[in-house]
């Protein structure tokens, strides 16, 4: 079971890096004569209403979901860890203020926060990724702060200060690296969460424009053919579930 989650992630990363290795079909141009065909040997995931190969669209779409999730996690990781590091090491009033602001962020559900950012920035792939990232800053900050507070009390940090280390130097060389373990595990989890959130926003129509084969958008497009063509919504969604499950498992393993 352990290798399976890594295999899923590796496969999807390969899809994103070299899509033409996995499919010979064009994700954007369809063959009208072959429209709405069920899954078969020729078309693994079937074809859509204009005769495009759905598997090709899912493979070529992976780059949008993955890069979006990467940006989102990066935003949360960098800003969240930085805020947590500052709050946990400076303590006092700064700690109070930063953590109360994080409480406020946590009191607004992630999707509503993302929608607020989108109404501000406007729709688009990058904006969606940023919006999802903003929603994860608070969880990263909380965890990073807790770790920093724990590490700061250890003897080796005291020793580093005692032997003449500067505040910033000790933070950078000792506190930060030793606080990162759980934060990395959270990143893996947030990667899956971000893929879910990005596909949800894509489904609602705030992400990529058609005919981009973004996963959420693929499912939204398949909605009009629910009665006749089950594969158009079911199969791209199953891919999303597999990737999110794998990311969650890996996060558990690292922890």
């Amino acid at each position: 079971m352990r290798w399976l989650s890594w295999a899923v992630i590796a496969l999807v990363v390969l899809w994103a890096a070299m899509p033409s290795l996995f499919t010979g079909y064009d994700p954007l141009a369809g063959v009208p004569a072959e429209k709405l065909q069920g899954p078969s040997a020729a078309h693994l995931f079937g074809t859509d209403a204009v005769g495009r190969d759905l598997f090709a669209r899912v493979v070529h779409g992976s780059v949008h979901s993955l890069s979006g999730a990467l940006v989102a996690v990066a935003v949360g990781l960098v800003f969240g860890t930085l805020l947590g590091l500052i709050a946990g090491s400076v303590r006092g009033v700064v700690d109070e203020i930063v953590m109360r602001v994080m409480d406020v962020l946590l009191s607004v559900p992630g999707l509503l926060l993302a929608l607020t950012v989108i109404i501000l920035l406007g729709p688009g792939t990058v904006h969606v990724a940023l919006a999802v990232g903003v929603g994860s800053v608070a969880s990263f900050a909380r965890l990073a702060r807790a770790e920093v507070v724990r590490v700061r009390r250890t003897d080796y940090v005291e020793a580093a200060f005692g032997s003449g280390g500067t505040f910033a130097g000790v933070l950078w060389r000792h506190v930060l690296p030793n606080s990162l373990g759980p934060v990395i595990a959270l990143s893996a989890l947030q990667f899956g969460v971000a893929i879910l959130a990005i596909s949800t926003l894509g489904f609602l129509g705030y992400g990529a424009e058609p005919p981009t084969p973004e996963w959420g958008l693929l499912i939204a497009e398949g909605r009009n053919y629910l009665a006749t063509s089950w594969w158009l919504t079911t199969l791209p969604g199953a891919v999303v579930v597999a990737v999110v499950l794998a990311a969650g498992r890996i996060s558990k393993e690292i922890r």
Partner: peptide, 22 residues
Amino acid sequence: PSLFISVPAFWLGILLIQVFSF
């Protein structure tokens, strides 16, 4: 629970419509 949390809600809704309605 890990499966439940990995399922996109919009996809679950569509799947339910597909199975139970169609």
